[in-house]
């Protein structure tokens, strides 16, 4: 990244190849939309190029990149307040074949309900669970990305998990439905 910062713009291609899947995966888990995830990945790398001078090189590039990624996502949801209603639009066609197997119907169902429950949560809580439980990020790194401290993040993730469980239970019981 320091090379990109010093003007070797073409080196951004290496960073893109190295991190595009992780970033795309994060976005896909957040919104379950291929096209939106691709759009946001593109926007992140444009922002990286535009704000390369702000990268001081002390921290990890990944943390800085996810900080930008988070801002891009929040911008998107701010501009499209009802975008969460589209979450899950691809789930039926995008799920891998083995999840369609009869033997795994229950599991598939459960995974669907999980993502539906996630979609009902606020973007701030959803991103904490995705980063922590799905992307496997450490609490400390998440704290740096969202600009908080480690202990506060642990508490917020625990509470988000409890809220997710409540929503998941209601979906399983058929108490609520997601369009």
């Amino acid at each position: 990244m320091l090379q990109v910062k010093s003007g070797e713009t073409d080196k951004l291609g290496l960073l893109y190849e190295r991190h595009k899947k992780a970033l795309y995966g994060f976005y896909y888990k957040m919104c379950r939309s291929v096209s939106l995830s691709e759009d946001m990945v593109q926007t992140v790398f444009i922002k990286i190029l535009q704000s390369k001078h702000t990268f001081i090189g002390n921290g990890q590039f990944v943390t800085w990149m996810f900080h930008i990624a988070r801002n891009v996502m929040h911008d998107h949801y701010r501009k499209n307040k009802h975008a969460h209603l589209q979450v899950g639009e691809n789930q039926g066609e995008q799920m891998p074949d083995q999840f369609d197997l009869e033997s795994n119907i229950e599991t598939q169902h459960s995974v669907d309900h999980l993502f539906q429950a996630l979609s009902l949560m606020s973007i701030e809580k959803r991103e904490l669970l995705v980063m922590s439980r799905m992307e496997g990020m450490k609490y400390k790194q998440i704290a740096e990305i969202v600009g908080s401290n480690e202990n506060a993040i642990k508490v917020r993730i625990h509470r988000a998990l409890k809220e997710l469980k409540s929503l998941f239970d209601q979906l399983e019981a058929g108490a609520i439905h997601v369009a």
């Binding site: 595009k20 795309y24 691809n90 992307e135």
Partner: peptide
């Protein structure tokens, strides 16, 4: 959640 995270993500 861990199980859901392992579900293959569609390729871009």
């Amino acid at each position: 959640i861990s199980l859901a995270a392992q579900a293959p993500t569609p390729e871009p």
